[in-house]
Amino acid sequence: MTPVGSLATPDEALVASYLGGPARTGSRFTFWLGLATLIGLAAVAALGLLAVPADDVQGDTVRIIFVHVPSALGAYAAFGLTALGSVMWLWRRSVWWDVTAHAGAEVGVLLCGLTLVTGMLWGRPTWGTYWEWGDVRLVTTLILFLVMVGYLSVRALGGDAASVATRAAVVGLVGAVNIPIVNRSVNWWANRTLHQQSSITDGKLEDLTLFTLFLAFVVAAMAICWMMMHRFRIGWLERQLQARDLHDALAARRAEANR
């Protein structure tokens, strides 16, 4: 984990440390993490697509939970990091946390989008519909997704780094408020959604199905760590390069003035 920690070193140090290093954001740690993730993924696919028995009612579509549920929990986790990072930016002006928040939003939007798509692909054969506009679980998830897309677009609006971070942090926190609403919606408004309540906490899954689902959580967590680390390093490097470019530009102006 040292690579991420070492990135917290102030400013020019990082760029300097990369100058002599390999031309990639990967490290030995992320290499092995990535490899382990791929192996885990193969195991989940073998179990989830072949070994796990079909459900008595759903049949084979039950196999979609192995991608749907980890995506959903992964999106919560990534957006949770965005929320934490946003708080730390607003409270401590921590650039490290701001970069983490940005990384979390990007990874979270990917996972939240996958949650929506895989959910629709499960809904059609199970419920008989891809989407229902009156369904609270579906619509609150879509709202969460859109708010976090908004977070990314606010960041893309540009401006000076500090005010971009502050604006984005506010959006990130608005999005985070939605996380518990999405999660609890199936319990709070049980008659407003087709979506079932949690199958795990109620212990309603068969043994092998449950084991495969937990393995899928572990693999998803590893994949998310890998993506977060790479995305964080990119964000951090972008900051350093911006700082360096600004520094260079100032130096050039100064040289210009001295002529």
């Binding site: 009156g134 609270v136 879509l142 709202i143 859109l146 908004g150 677009s153 606010v154 893309a156």
Partner: peptide, 30 residues
């Protein structure tokens, strides 16, 4: 790129507003 970001931001804000008002209204009773 900034124009695209601005358009996306506006579209997202409008979309969220519509969805939230829809949820709070009658359509939400499933």
């Amino acid at each position: 790129r900034r124009w695209i970001a601005a358009l996306v931001t506006v579209a997202v804000a409008a979309g969220v507003a519509v969805l939230v008002s829809n949820l709070l209204g009658d359509a939400a009773l499933f």
